[in-house]
């Protein structure tokens, strides 16, 4: 009986020690995360601030806050040094992105459905090519692809940039949708088949609604990657009137006089804006997509 208070005092001291240690390590964790977070985000914040600065100020202060905010960079940058405004280049990007997204979504759905729900001759071999293409570096197919598109007269058009994707060319998306479909139970599809629906009707009315979150992920990733794509347009597009944003930015670096940094930063901000807006609107789908299928990037 007399020993009891002694023990509980010890235990209390121990608990107190543990709690303090937990507090110290959680302080440490938060500080570390905040520092890393700042390093990650500050360049972007700085760029946004700098796009409202005058040229002279950009290289004179590490602060992101513009002393005399001006939108001159946006006005001059938007005009570009070409006969077109930046609006034209945004339009061109959309002319690539929209057919590419739609084509990818449709073709990858059909193909994933075929792999996940049917048995057919050569299935194993064909499926193994999906994995192989996933790992195949594009660099090895790029030159003959260029020659192929040259021979069929597609150079300097948007077609080489989206047609391969519309034939389920991005193995990653096919793979992701197959994974997703495998996890969906088949009861509803079987019930629909019993009720006399054919496989295509089953796909459209039963599978696609369930697949929608995954399809949104597919479209979002395709949007981002196409916005960021530079090498494709660089190889296939030669006339300025067809340039997407990525090429237009490169052009503005090459042609703007060395001191017009505010214009370039302003246009860079605009170039990033669509991706950022889409990302913040649909963050959930990115995190889910990347976590189910694994992702490049």
């Amino acid at each position: 009986m007399t020993a009891m208070p002694q023990i509980s005092a010890d235990t209390l001291a121990n608990m107190e020690k543990q709690r303090r240690r937990a507090r110290i390590s959680s302080t440490f964790r938060y500080s570390l995360l905040i520092i890393v977070g700042l390093i990650m985000v500050y360049p972007l914040v700085w760029m946004f601030g700098a796009s409202f600065k005058t040229n002279a100020e950009i290289f004179s202060s590490p602060s992101f806050w513009p002393k005399e905010p001006t939108v001159q960079g946006y006005i001059d940058g938007w005009k570009t040094s070409t006969p077109y405004t930046f609006a034209k280049f945004f339009m061109n990007s959309m002319m690539i992105i929209i057919p590419k997204m739609i084509g990818t979504a449709i073709s990858c759905t059909l193909v994933a459905y075929g792999f996940a729900r049917f048995d057919f001759p050569f299935k194993k071999i064909i499926f193994s090519t999906v994995i192989a293409t996933l790992l195949l570096p594009n660099v090895v197919t790029r030159i003959p692809q260029y020659l192929l598109f040259r021979d069929i007269g597609w150079l300097d058009s948007f077609l080489p940039l989206w047609v391969p994707s519309a034939l389920a060319g991005d193995a990653f998306f096919v793979f992701m949708l197959i994974q997703f479909l495998r996890a969906i139970p088949r009861d509803m599809e079987e019930a629909a088949r019993v009720d006399g629906a054919n496989t295509l009707q089953t796909l459209i009315y039963i599978v696609v609604p369930m697949l929608t979150p995954a399809l949104i992920s597919v479209c979002l990733f395709q949007f981002m990657w196409t916005m960021n794509d530079f090498l494709g347009p660089l190889i296939y597009l030669s006339s300025v009137e067809n340039y997407p944003i990525s090429l237009a930015l490169k052009l503005s670096i090459d042609t703007t006089e060395a001191f017009a940094w505010n214009q370039i930063l302003a246009m860079s901000c605009l170039a990033l804006a669509p991706s950022l807006i889409v990302f913040f609107m649909a963050q959930k789908y990115f995190i889910e997509g990347i976590s189910t299928g694994g992702v490049k990037g």
Binding site: L110, Y113, F115, D119, R142, Q145, A168, G169
Partner: peptide, 28 residues
């Protein structure tokens, strides 16, 4: 269903694979 039905669904992929991956791979 016919045992070839699934093949129809994956046909876009097979065409794309042959045209834009397999052929360029060999050609390069």
């Amino acid at each position: 269903d016919s045992k070839y039905l699934g093949l129809w669904y994956v046909a876009p992929y097979v065409i794309g694979l042959l045209l834009f991956t397999a052929f360029p791979f060999v050609a390069s």
